[in-house]
């Protein structure tokens, strides 16, 4: 009797340790940690995108039995560099990083590597290979293409439009803009009347949009490098009573999806960051326990279009089928 109870208990424990994590992460067999430290470094949590990114990574790491230290670099490469020093001196087992600059992040990642700490990049790439353990990024170019194709359809292939650029020091801003222009450039009746940077910021986008409207009252659409700027543009358009201008963003933040539901924005492109945060932690865990690195360093994940037709399937950066 006693033995049978023990047997069942062991079986249950096995189920919990093996099945639960694998349930969370489909088919991959992820080993559990023993309290090693995983340091998670992201841009400021004032953007819900990065907040969710850090939260998902932290939850996943703790679920697997790791200690976590969540740090924020505020897009300042120097601060990021200091955080790497902290991670190294704390003897971290792995670093999960959404980096502060494609070039400026190479040196600290290399330093961590020399100290035996692998860095798993999420969301943004760096301009070097063979240094990071993996680079899990959504393909910004194809995300932008998906958004632009939907935008062209909304516009009916004609009319004046405005493009809002992200921070020009950020590689993604350029890549996204390239994606937009490659698609829209094929339609000669779509006229780009203004391109302005709003530094990823909602307030700046509001101001820029207000100014642009002064000179271009006849615009029909706005395509924005991210959602926060798109929301700023929507606010400016609504203030000017121009509710029928099409606005398309990128990132798939909860705010943007709420705006789509309320008829403000018209579409956004979701980067499935919940997926890559969790994947990066899983890969880190595999490395820590077995010493195996992911086969492919660069792993790109496709984006999903969020429109008024599918907003009900969306919840905090996850779009269920």
């Amino acid at each position: 009797m006693k033995h049978r109870f023990l047997f069942v208990a062991c079986l249950l424990a096995l189920l919990v340790t093996v099945v639960v994590p694998t349930m969370a992460q489909d088919d991959m067999d992820v080993p559990m940690g023993n309290g090693e430290l995983i340091v998670i470094i992201t841009p400021s949590h004032d953007n819900p995108f990065f907040q969710a990114e850090a939260d998902v990574a932290q939850a996943r790491a703790e679920e697997l039995g790791y200690e976590t230290l969540v740090l924020v670099h505020d897009d300042d490469p120097n601060l990021q560099d200091q955080h790497f020093d902290v991670a190294i001196s704390q003897g971290a087992a792995a670093i999960i990083l959404d980096n502060a600059g494609a070039d400026a992040s190479i040196a600290p990642i290399e330093r961590a590597k020399e100290a035996g700490i692998p860095t798993f990049l999420i969301d943004r790439e760096i301009n070097a290979t063979g240094i990071a353990a993996s680079q899990l990024v959504s393909n910004n170019y194809s995300c932008a293409v998906a958004g632009a194709e939907y935008f062209v359809g909304l516009m009916g292939e004609e009319g004046q439009y405005v493009e809002l650029l992200g921070k020009e020091t950020d590689t993604n801003a350029g890549v996204r803009s390239q994606g937009y222009n490659d698609v829209i450039g094929d339609f000669p009746d779509l006229e780009l009347v203004a391109v302005q940077t709003a530094n990823w910021s909602q307030t700046e986008a509001f101001d820029v949009m207000e100014t642009i409207l002064q000179g271009n009252p006849g615009i029909k659409g706005v395509i924005s490098g991210n959602d926060t700027m798109a929301l700023g543009a929507v606010a400016a358009l609504e203030a000017a009573g121009m509710n029928d201008v099409f606005v398309v963003g990128l990132d798939g933040s909860p705010d943007a999806v709420a705006s789509i539901e309320q008829g403000g924005m018209d579409a956004t492109v979701l980067q499935p960051l919940a997926l890559f945060s969790a994947m990066a932690v899983d890969q880190a865990s595999v490395y820590i326990q077995t010493g195996e690195l992911p086969a492919e360093e660069k792993q790109s994940i496709d984006c999903l279009l969020v429109t008024p037709e599918n907003t009900m399937n969306y919840s905090n950066f996850v779009l269920s089928e």
Binding site: D81, A104, I106
Partner: peptide
Amino acid sequence: IIASQLVAAHPATGE
């Protein structure tokens, strides 16, 4: 010092 530590010069450094 910062450019040397990062082995890169980033224009937004020092904000």
